[in-house]
Design a protein around this nucleic acid. Sequence first.
DNA 1: TGTCCGATTGGT
DNA 2: CCAATCGGACAG
Length: 204
Amino acid sequence: MNSAAFALSAAELAPLLLGKLLCHRTPQGLAAGMIVEAEAYCGPEDDAAPSFGGRRTARTEAMFGPPGHAYVFRLYGMHSCFNVVAAPEGSPQAVLIRALEPVEGLALMERRLGLTDPLQLCSGPGKLCRALAIGPAQYGLDLCGEELFLTDFRGFSPAEICVSPRVNVDYALGYRDRLWRFFVKDCPYVSRVPRRYASRGTLG
DNA sequence: TGTCCGATTGGT
DNA sequence: CCAATCGGACAG
């Protein structure tokens, strides 16, 4: 993908990332999966985003950087979450990648997770980072580079893309109901979430 | 320097 | 429903 393609608002970019292939080359080999679920975080107004209120710290710095780079954060001291930085430099927006359909390097992913069910290898933001070995070392990487990158894989029509509220941001009183979670309709690789996050319809 | 806490996950 | 586990953020 061209770097110019990422200079959209996170809410515009998120659904466009569905169908793209997220690839990570490591010394162990290449692991890749098709993005099937993503969420938009649109700071500084979005009170679910760490950049809410324009908070600019070492942790959120990548969100303020140029689009098309990796923003990785650690959660609960044990999980990493991968985001694609959106919007022009200075505007802190990012798209959280929540699930992939494994496409390449399945054996590698299985080894990293200790699981063999392909439906469970990349079904969640923390798990897909483990499967692709994405962590703090990939913070800020240019996604048009050689190590961690996105490629076109397939497309989805608006009618195939479901929307819902974002998962586990109930603390965000102002923006928790925004329909900024996007996922592929009837796709078994989408992460399992509580009923309250069920589809509210499609883009079609 | 001390306290608080999470954009998750997996097991009870 | 609940614990795991830890560095960043912020108050003092």
